[in-house]
Amino acid sequence: MSIFVPNKVYLRGILLHYFIQKKSAAEAHRILVQTYGDNALSDTTCRDWFRRFKNNDFELEDKERSGAPKKFQDKELEQLLDEDPSQTLSELGKILQVDESTVSKRLKGLGMIQKQGHWVPYELKPRDVERRFGTCELLLQRQKRKGFLITGDRYRLQLMCLSRTLKEKRPLYAQRHDKVISLHDNARPHVAKPVKTYLETLKWEVLLHPLYSPDIAPSDFHLFRSMAHGLADRRFHSYEEAQKWIDSWIALKDMSFFRRGIHVLPERWEKVVSSDGQYFK
């Protein structure tokens, strides 16, 4: 019995279908992996094609390439970083169809550096410095006034599922006036209107978080940084395999690990304030 092996154009057609269905590139990639396994397109390739579709480029066949090196505009690179500032040089190079050194030089020219795995401006604009300083100052005042209790940073869990679980496992949850204090960054899914509206219905408090500040996000400076060590040289062959490893890794961490990442926040806020909003070492 022959086994169907999809070609690139066939898979791109499926991506276009999911794009029209208003699914995200990540959702489309996950479905492809579940269906076609090792024959699926990579996550980076899926995001690249979704970006083309958003620019009204629906041609699924490979375009003829000339012998001249591929060129791209700064705004293309800036758009990719705006969509996901955690992309690696390799991922950016594949999307833009250039080598890593070309991307690295262009990033340097744009004044971008990596902090906690995120591309951020080497020199913050005055308004960004002021925002970091003001936000951390307000957070420190809040911490002194109300004490320190932040639940979360595992934002990957769906909010509805988290709320339901809290109601099931903590009978007094609905009676507590402070309920949940959420801290997440400014990634588009986190600040989307449906998410904000749902958080308002839950009456959860969302802490302020300034732009270009992975150094004061526990998920970046603590959780993902630690996870990266465990992921070194590890390869996964399916979405389920990766999910199983992550679930196991989190389950093996005791509560003190997560508390450390949260309880060090006031110290980091103070460093931002003492640095007048600039990045600290």
Rank of each mutant, 00 (worst) to 15 (best):
V9L: 09
K54W: 10
L60P: 00
F53H: 02
N56A: 15
R65Q: 12
R30Y: 09
K70I: 12
L16I: 02
E59R: 11
F58R: 09
L89V: 03
N55P: 03
S90E: 04
G67M: 10
T45E: 10
E76P: 01
V33Y: 00
A26F: 05
Y36Q: 02
E61D: 14
A28D: 00
E76W: 09
Q73Y: 13
F50Y: 15
V5Y: 08
E59C: 13
K70W: 11
D57Y: 07
N56M: 11
I95H: 05
L96F: 14
T88A: 08
W49G: 00
T45P: 00
L11S: 01
D84I: 03
E76F: 06
Y10N: 06
I95R: 08
D84A: 13
Q79C: 08
D38L: 13
K94N: 13
G37H: 03
Q73M: 14
H29I: 01
T88E: 05
E78L: 14
F19E: 02
G13W: 07
L77G: 08
K23M: 14
E91P: 02
S24H: 00
L96K: 10
R51V: 00
K75A: 14
R47Q: 11
N56Q: 15
L81E: 05
Q21N: 13
D62F: 07
G37V: 05
S66N: 13
K8L: 07
L15Q: 02
G93K: 01
N39V: 01
Q73L: 14
R30V: 02
S42Q: 10
V5H: 03
D74M: 05
L89D: 05
N55Y: 06
S86Y: 05
D62P: 09
S90N: 09
F58E: 04
G93Y: 00
Y36I: 03
R65T: 04
A68C: 08
P69D: 07
V5C: 13
P85C: 13
E78V: 06
T45D: 09
F4L: 09
E64W: 06
A68Q: 14
R12M: 00
E64Q: 11
P6S: 05
I20L: 15
V9N: 03
K63W: 04
T44E: 08
E76L: 03
L92D: 05
I3T: 14
I31L: 12
P69N: 07
K8G: 12
P85T: 11
P6A: 02
N7S: 05
K71V: 15
L89T: 01
N39G: 08
D84W: 07
F72N: 07
K63S: 10
N56E: 09
Q79L: 09
T45I: 02
S2I: 12
I20T: 08
T35E: 13
M1P: 14
D82M: 12
R51H: 10
K70H: 13
D82C: 11
I31S: 13
L77Y: 09
G67Y: 12
